[in-house]
């Protein structure tokens, strides 16, 4: 790890003042579960590390008229213990339960989950976010078994590693970002971006901004669930996930949001599947068709076509989990 100066401010303004308008100068430290590994591997070599865990405003879960407000430094363990989250947002609970290590759940934060860097092994070995060498993609020509099957037509083939990205996009949540010029809000869907060049990042956060809170709309009439297909029961990222949020009208689905995880550089909306499900009841036949529609437009790489089948499985099981109990 390269040496750095450290600060532990107690206000958002102080913290923002310690950041830089260029990437690479300063890093924000919350749970540290991803950042410390990036530092140890020299993937990030900042001059300053700004610990935001002592900023009180960034903590806590609060129910408001506009929905649930989740502070960026709320840990996964705190989220799991929240009765408000449990009551209305099973998809968030299921996503948090997917992080199988209690140690990570005790340290890792919801904001950090959204800001974690991709797990692409070329990126983690220092070949850059897009892993290009002499104008050729190491991912396309190399081992891409865990890479993208959607949104991979540009130079980015990694998958978003976020556990909460898919359920938050499905629930139409927003994030609040605070920088030197004030604050702005973005739908989580717009927070994740597909970078087109090596100088870009996979999230819309600017280098001098801090993600301060997540705002989730009320979901009293929204059946929601997350299903993760994973290789093992212990700590690892899933292979494919599906999060669904279904606005119900009686027993039928009025409108649906179906979002896939670990299949694209961003949480991937399965819009064909969403359209197909609108206005229908959740019968086995409908679920089957919707799961098939979720694979529309998939462009697997040389070693990851298996993920197309996992998409069908994840969507079907997420819909079954979200279906009202008879």
């Amino acid at each position: 790890m390269q040496a750095f100066a450290y600060a532990s401010p107690t206000s958002i303004q102080e913290a923002v003042a310690l950041l830089s308008d260029r990437w690479g100068v300063a890093d924000v430290l919350a749970g540290g579960t991803d950042l410390l590994s990036l530092l140890k591997d020299y993937i990030h070599t900042p001059q300053r590390v700004v610990n935001i865990k002592n900023i009180k405003e960034l903590g806590g879960i609060r129910k408001t008229a506009a929905g649930l407000r989740i502070g960026a430094t709320v840990t996964l363990a705190e989220l799991l213990a929240s009765s408000e989250v449990r009551a209305e947002y099973p998809s968030l609970i299921q996503a948090a339960q997917g992080v199988k290590s209690p140690q990570i759940r005790n340290m890792g934060t919801v904001g950090g989950d959204l800001c974690q860097r991709p797990r692409c092994w070329y990126f983690r070995q220092g070949f850059g976010l897009l892993a290009m060498k002499d104008g050729r993609s190491l991912v396309r020509e190399g081992d891409n078994r865990y890479h993208a099957i959607f949104g991979n037509q540009g130079p980015a083939c990694f998958v978003s590693a976020s556990s909460f990205g898919p359920p938050l996009v499905a629930l139409n949540a927003r994030v609040k970002l605070v920088g030197p010029k004030g604050e702005r809000e973005l739908p989580v869907e717009k927070f994740f971006v597909i970078p087109q060049s090596e100088s870009e990042r996979e999230i819309a956060l600017r280098p001098d901004e801090i993600l301060t809170e997540i705002l989730v709309p009320p979901a009293t009439n929204v059946r929601n669930a997350t299903y993760e297909v994973r290789q093992r029961e212990t700590l690892d990222w899933p292979l494919v996930t599906a999060s669904v949020a279904l606005t119900m009208k009686g027993t039928a689905v009025a409108s649906a949001r179906i979002v896939l995880g670990h299949v694209a550089p961003i949480p991937w909306r399965a819009t064909e599947a969403e359209k197909l499900l609108a206005g229908k009841g959740l019968t086995a036949a409908v679920i089957q068709k919707v799961a098939e529609a979720a694979t529309t437009g998939a462009t697997p790489l040389s070693k990851n076509a298996y993920k197309v089948q996992l998409v069908r499985v994840a969507v079907r099981r997420a819909l079954e989990a979200a279906r009202p109990k008879a």
Partner: peptide, 23 residues
Amino acid sequence: DRGTCGACTVLLDGKAVYACNIL
């Protein structure tokens, strides 16, 4: 040393954490 194996687990205010993942 990357917050995966758990061999460095200690308790911080009673909670299990990876000592390798904390400054």
